[in-house]
Amino acid sequence: MTATAPRRRGARTTALGIVLTALMLFPVYWMLNVSLTPQQDMRKSPPDLLPLHPTFSGYSAVLHDQLPYLATSLLIGLGTVVLTLLLAAPAGYALAKLRPRGSGLLGLALLIAQMIPGIVMAMGFYAIFLNLGMMNTWWGLVVADSTVAVPFGVMIFTAFMSGIPDELTAAARIDGAGTVRTFWSVVLPVSRNALVTVSLFSFLWAWSDFVFANTLDSGGTLRPITLGIYHYIGNNNQEWNAIMATAVVASVPAALLLVLAQRYVAAGVTAGAVKD
Protein backbone atom coordinates (compact mmCIF):
# COMPACT_ATOMS: atom_id res chain seq x y z
CA MET A 1 0.00 0.00 0.00
CA THR A 2 2.62 2.51 1.08
CA ALA A 3 4.92 1.45 -1.77
CA THR A 4 2.32 1.92 -4.50
CA ALA A 5 1.18 5.39 -3.39
CA PRO A 6 4.32 7.27 -4.54
CA ARG A 7 4.38 5.25 -7.78
CA ARG A 8 0.78 6.22 -8.50
CA ARG A 9 1.65 9.86 -7.78
CA GLY A 10 4.61 9.53 -10.18
CA ALA A 11 2.31 8.26 -12.92
CA ARG A 12 -0.05 11.18 -12.31
CA THR A 13 2.88 13.62 -12.61
CA THR A 14 3.96 12.02 -15.87
CA ALA A 15 0.42 12.28 -17.20
CA LEU A 16 0.30 15.97 -16.28
CA GLY A 17 3.68 16.46 -17.94
CA ILE A 18 2.42 14.87 -21.14
CA VAL A 19 -0.68 17.09 -21.15
CA LEU A 20 1.42 20.23 -20.65
CA THR A 21 3.83 19.23 -23.41
CA ALA A 22 0.94 18.47 -25.76
CA LEU A 23 -0.56 21.92 -25.08
CA MET A 24 2.79 23.57 -25.69
CA LEU A 25 3.35 21.71 -28.94
CA PHE A 26 -0.16 22.20 -30.29
CA PRO A 27 0.94 24.92 -32.76
CA VAL A 28 3.56 22.52 -34.13
CA TYR A 29 0.91 19.83 -34.55
CA TRP A 30 -1.38 22.34 -36.19
CA MET A 31 1.34 23.28 -38.67
CA LEU A 32 1.64 19.59 -39.62
CA ASN A 33 -2.12 19.17 -39.80
CA VAL A 34 -2.65 22.21 -42.04
CA SER A 35 0.24 21.15 -44.28
CA LEU A 36 -1.71 17.94 -45.03
CA THR A 37 -5.15 19.55 -45.40
CA PRO A 38 -6.54 19.83 -48.95
CA GLN A 39 -6.89 23.43 -50.09
CA GLN A 40 -10.71 23.18 -50.46
CA ASP A 41 -11.05 22.11 -46.78
CA MET A 42 -8.82 24.94 -45.55
CA ARG A 43 -11.65 27.32 -44.68
CA LYS A 44 -14.06 24.63 -43.60
CA SER A 45 -15.92 25.22 -40.35
CA PRO A 46 -15.35 23.43 -38.06
CA PRO A 47 -11.77 22.70 -39.15
CA ASP A 48 -10.62 19.06 -39.28
CA LEU A 49 -8.66 18.43 -36.11
CA LEU A 50 -7.06 15.36 -37.66
CA PRO A 51 -5.67 15.02 -41.19
CA LEU A 52 -8.42 12.58 -42.21
CA HIS A 53 -8.00 13.16 -45.93
CA PRO A 54 -4.30 13.94 -46.11
CA THR A 55 -2.95 15.42 -49.29
CA PHE A 56 0.67 15.83 -50.22
CA SER A 57 -0.02 18.57 -52.74
CA GLY A 58 1.50 21.10 -50.35
CA TYR A 59 4.71 19.09 -50.22
CA SER A 60 4.82 18.63 -53.97
CA ALA A 61 4.48 22.43 -54.24
CA VAL A 62 7.53 22.68 -51.95
CA LEU A 63 9.50 20.33 -54.21
CA HIS A 64 8.39 22.35 -57.20
CA ASP A 65 8.98 25.88 -55.88
CA GLN A 66 11.29 25.83 -52.91
CA LEU A 67 14.23 23.53 -53.64
CA PRO A 68 16.58 26.34 -54.78
CA TYR A 69 15.73 28.31 -51.63
CA LEU A 70 16.49 25.29 -49.45
CA ALA A 71 19.83 24.76 -51.20
CA THR A 72 20.73 28.42 -50.69
CA SER A 73 19.90 28.21 -47.00
CA LEU A 74 22.10 25.13 -46.70
CA LEU A 75 24.96 26.95 -48.41
CA ILE A 76 24.57 30.05 -46.24
CA GLY A 77 24.26 27.94 -43.08
CA LEU A 78 27.41 25.96 -43.80
CA GLY A 79 29.31 29.09 -44.82
CA THR A 80 28.33 30.75 -41.56
CA VAL A 81 29.50 27.72 -39.56
CA VAL A 82 32.93 27.77 -41.23
CA LEU A 83 33.40 31.52 -40.81
CA THR A 84 32.23 31.42 -37.19
CA LEU A 85 34.54 28.55 -36.22
CA LEU A 86 37.54 30.15 -37.97
CA LEU A 87 37.04 33.37 -36.01
CA ALA A 88 35.73 32.14 -32.68
CA ALA A 89 37.93 29.12 -31.87
CA PRO A 90 41.32 30.91 -31.92
CA ALA A 91 39.82 33.90 -30.12
CA GLY A 92 38.38 31.64 -27.41
CA TYR A 93 41.78 29.97 -26.97
CA ALA A 94 43.56 33.31 -26.62
CA LEU A 95 40.98 34.64 -24.14
CA ALA A 96 40.96 31.44 -22.08
CA LYS A 97 44.61 30.39 -22.03
CA LEU A 98 46.94 33.11 -23.37
CA ARG A 99 45.17 36.12 -21.84
CA PRO A 100 47.31 38.97 -23.20
CA ARG A 101 46.93 42.38 -21.60
CA GLY A 102 43.75 44.12 -22.80
CA SER A 103 41.86 40.94 -23.62
CA GLY A 104 39.37 41.55 -20.80
CA LEU A 105 38.15 44.59 -22.71
CA LEU A 106 37.63 42.41 -25.78
CA GLY A 107 35.45 40.05 -23.77
CA LEU A 108 33.31 42.99 -22.67
CA ALA A 109 33.04 44.23 -26.26
CA LEU A 110 31.77 40.80 -27.34
CA LEU A 111 29.14 40.81 -24.59
CA ILE A 112 27.88 44.21 -25.66
CA ALA A 113 27.93 43.15 -29.32
CA GLN A 114 25.32 40.50 -28.52
CA MET A 115 22.91 43.15 -27.33
CA ILE A 116 22.78 45.23 -30.48
CA PRO A 117 19.44 44.81 -32.27
CA GLY A 118 19.69 42.95 -35.57
CA ILE A 119 17.56 45.57 -37.26
CA VAL A 120 20.20 48.25 -36.56
CA MET A 121 22.97 46.01 -37.88
CA ALA A 122 20.87 45.33 -40.97
CA MET A 123 20.58 49.02 -41.74
CA GLY A 124 24.33 49.57 -41.31
CA PHE A 125 25.09 46.55 -43.50
CA TYR A 126 22.64 47.82 -46.10
CA ALA A 127 24.55 51.08 -46.43
CA ILE A 128 27.91 49.27 -46.61
CA PHE A 129 26.82 46.49 -48.95
CA LEU A 130 25.29 48.99 -51.34
CA ASN A 131 28.58 50.87 -51.65
CA LEU A 132 30.71 47.73 -51.95
CA GLY A 133 28.40 45.93 -54.38
CA MET A 134 27.83 43.07 -51.92
CA MET A 135 24.05 43.34 -52.13
CA ASN A 136 22.14 40.15 -53.06
CA THR A 137 25.13 37.85 -52.70
CA TRP A 138 25.10 34.67 -50.63
CA TRP A 139 28.52 35.37 -49.12
CA GLY A 140 27.40 38.85 -48.08
CA LEU A 141 24.61 37.16 -46.18
CA VAL A 142 27.13 34.72 -44.63
CA VAL A 143 29.07 37.70 -43.29
CA ALA A 144 25.94 39.37 -41.92
CA ASP A 145 24.59 36.13 -40.38
CA SER A 146 27.90 35.39 -38.71
CA THR A 147 27.57 38.55 -36.60
CA VAL A 148 24.87 36.77 -34.62
CA ALA A 149 26.95 33.65 -34.01
CA VAL A 150 30.52 34.93 -33.56
CA PRO A 151 30.20 36.65 -30.15
CA PHE A 152 28.24 33.63 -28.85
CA GLY A 153 30.89 31.30 -30.29
CA VAL A 154 33.78 33.13 -28.64
CA MET A 155 31.91 33.00 -25.33
CA ILE A 156 31.33 29.23 -25.59
CA PHE A 157 34.92 28.50 -26.63
CA THR A 158 36.34 30.72 -23.88
CA ALA A 159 34.19 29.07 -21.22
CA PHE A 160 35.01 25.59 -22.46
CA MET A 161 38.75 26.09 -22.99
CA SER A 162 39.14 27.68 -19.55
CA GLY A 163 38.21 24.27 -18.21
CA ILE A 164 41.07 22.50 -20.00
CA PRO A 165 43.76 21.77 -17.38
CA ASP A 166 46.93 23.83 -17.80
CA GLU A 167 49.00 20.65 -17.36
CA LEU A 168 47.76 19.48 -20.75
CA THR A 169 49.01 22.54 -22.63
CA ALA A 170 52.20 22.66 -20.54
CA ALA A 171 52.94 19.05 -21.45
CA ALA A 172 52.54 19.89 -25.12
CA ARG A 173 54.93 22.81 -24.69
CA ILE A 174 57.57 20.55 -23.06
CA ASP A 175 57.26 18.18 -25.98
CA GLY A 176 58.33 21.11 -28.11
CA ALA A 177 55.00 22.22 -29.55
CA GLY A 178 54.59 25.95 -30.20
CA THR A 179 51.42 27.87 -29.37
CA VAL A 180 49.86 27.23 -32.76
CA ARG A 181 50.69 23.55 -32.64
CA THR A 182 49.35 23.26 -29.09
CA PHE A 183 46.10 24.91 -30.17
CA TRP A 184 45.68 22.72 -33.23
CA SER A 185 46.68 19.29 -31.93
CA VAL A 186 45.85 19.49 -28.24
CA VAL A 187 43.26 22.16 -27.45
CA LEU A 188 40.98 21.80 -30.49
CA PRO A 189 40.61 17.99 -30.30
CA VAL A 190 39.57 18.08 -26.65
CA SER A 191 37.15 20.96 -27.36
CA ARG A 192 34.89 18.79 -29.47
CA ASN A 193 31.78 19.58 -27.41
CA ALA A 194 32.29 23.30 -27.83
CA LEU A 195 32.90 22.86 -31.57
CA VAL A 196 29.65 20.93 -31.93
CA THR A 197 27.62 23.42 -29.87
CA VAL A 198 28.90 26.46 -31.77
CA SER A 199 28.45 24.77 -35.16
CA LEU A 200 24.88 23.73 -34.38
CA PHE A 201 23.79 27.14 -33.20
CA SER A 202 25.52 29.13 -35.93
CA PHE A 203 23.92 26.86 -38.53
CA LEU A 204 20.48 27.12 -36.99
CA TRP A 205 20.62 30.91 -36.64
CA ALA A 206 21.85 31.40 -40.21
CA TRP A 207 19.17 29.00 -41.46
CA SER A 208 16.46 30.88 -39.54
CA ASP A 209 17.61 34.40 -40.37
CA PHE A 210 14.94 36.65 -41.80
CA VAL A 211 16.00 40.26 -41.05
CA PHE A 212 19.28 40.16 -42.93
CA ALA A 213 17.86 38.11 -45.78
CA ASN A 214 14.94 40.49 -46.27
CA THR A 215 17.11 43.62 -46.24
CA LEU A 216 20.29 42.42 -47.93
CA ASP A 217 19.18 39.66 -50.31
CA SER A 218 15.58 40.34 -51.29
CA GLY A 219 16.40 40.76 -54.98
CA GLY A 220 19.13 38.18 -55.45
CA THR A 221 19.08 35.01 -57.50
CA LEU A 222 20.13 32.96 -54.45
CA ARG A 223 17.56 33.57 -51.74
CA PRO A 224 17.14 31.58 -48.51
CA ILE A 225 14.10 29.54 -47.48
CA THR A 226 12.88 32.15 -44.98
CA LEU A 227 12.24 34.47 -47.92
CA GLY A 228 10.66 31.59 -49.81
CA ILE A 229 8.05 31.27 -47.08
CA TYR A 230 7.65 35.02 -46.74
CA HIS A 231 6.89 35.40 -50.44
CA TYR A 232 4.47 32.49 -50.27
CA ILE A 233 2.56 34.33 -47.52
CA GLY A 234 2.66 37.57 -49.49
CA ASN A 235 1.02 36.00 -52.52
CA ASN A 236 -2.65 36.75 -52.82
CA ASN A 237 -3.79 33.19 -53.53
CA GLN A 238 -2.82 32.15 -50.01
CA GLU A 239 -2.26 28.43 -50.31
CA TRP A 240 -1.86 27.66 -46.67
CA ASN A 241 -1.12 23.98 -47.09
CA ALA A 242 1.84 24.85 -49.29
CA ILE A 243 2.95 27.55 -46.84
CA MET A 244 2.72 25.17 -43.88
CA ALA A 245 4.41 22.38 -45.83
CA THR A 246 7.33 24.71 -46.48
CA ALA A 247 7.33 25.64 -42.80
CA VAL A 248 7.51 21.95 -41.88
CA VAL A 249 10.43 21.40 -44.24
CA ALA A 250 12.16 24.53 -42.90
CA SER A 251 11.82 23.12 -39.37
CA VAL A 252 13.69 19.92 -40.20
CA PRO A 253 17.14 21.22 -39.15
CA ALA A 254 15.74 22.31 -35.77
CA ALA A 255 14.14 18.90 -35.26
CA LEU A 256 17.31 17.04 -36.29
CA LEU A 257 19.31 19.18 -33.95
CA LEU A 258 17.08 18.32 -31.05
CA VAL A 259 17.12 14.60 -31.80
CA LEU A 260 20.85 14.30 -32.49
CA ALA A 261 22.33 16.79 -30.09
CA GLN A 262 19.92 17.56 -27.30
CA ARG A 263 22.51 17.96 -24.58
CA TYR A 264 24.49 20.43 -26.70
CA VAL A 265 21.34 22.47 -27.23
CA ALA A 266 20.63 22.77 -23.53
CA ALA A 267 24.30 23.64 -22.97
CA GLY A 268 24.07 26.38 -25.56
CA VAL A 269 20.91 27.89 -24.10
CA THR A 270 22.31 28.07 -20.58
CA ALA A 271 25.84 29.15 -21.56
CA GLY A 272 26.63 32.53 -20.15
CA ALA A 273 23.40 32.76 -18.24
CA VAL A 274 24.29 30.39 -15.44
CA LYS A 275 27.73 30.16 -13.92
CA ASP A 276 28.36 27.22 -11.64
Binding site: T21, W207, S208, F210, I229, A250, A254, A255
Partner: peptide, 12 residues
Protein backbone atom coordinates in the same frame (compact mmCIF):
# COMPACT_ATOMS: atom_id res chain seq x y z
CA UNK B 1 10.29 18.58 -26.53
CA UNK B 2 9.55 21.86 -24.77
CA UNK B 3 12.58 23.33 -26.55
CA UNK B 4 11.00 23.01 -30.00
CA UNK B 5 9.24 26.41 -30.08
CA UNK B 6 12.51 28.14 -29.29
CA UNK B 7 14.42 26.30 -32.01
CA UNK B 8 11.97 26.79 -34.87
CA UNK B 9 12.82 29.52 -37.37
CA UNK B 10 10.81 32.63 -36.44
CA UNK B 11 9.18 32.73 -39.84
CA UNK B 12 7.79 29.25 -39.20
Amino acid sequence: LFLIPWLLPLIV
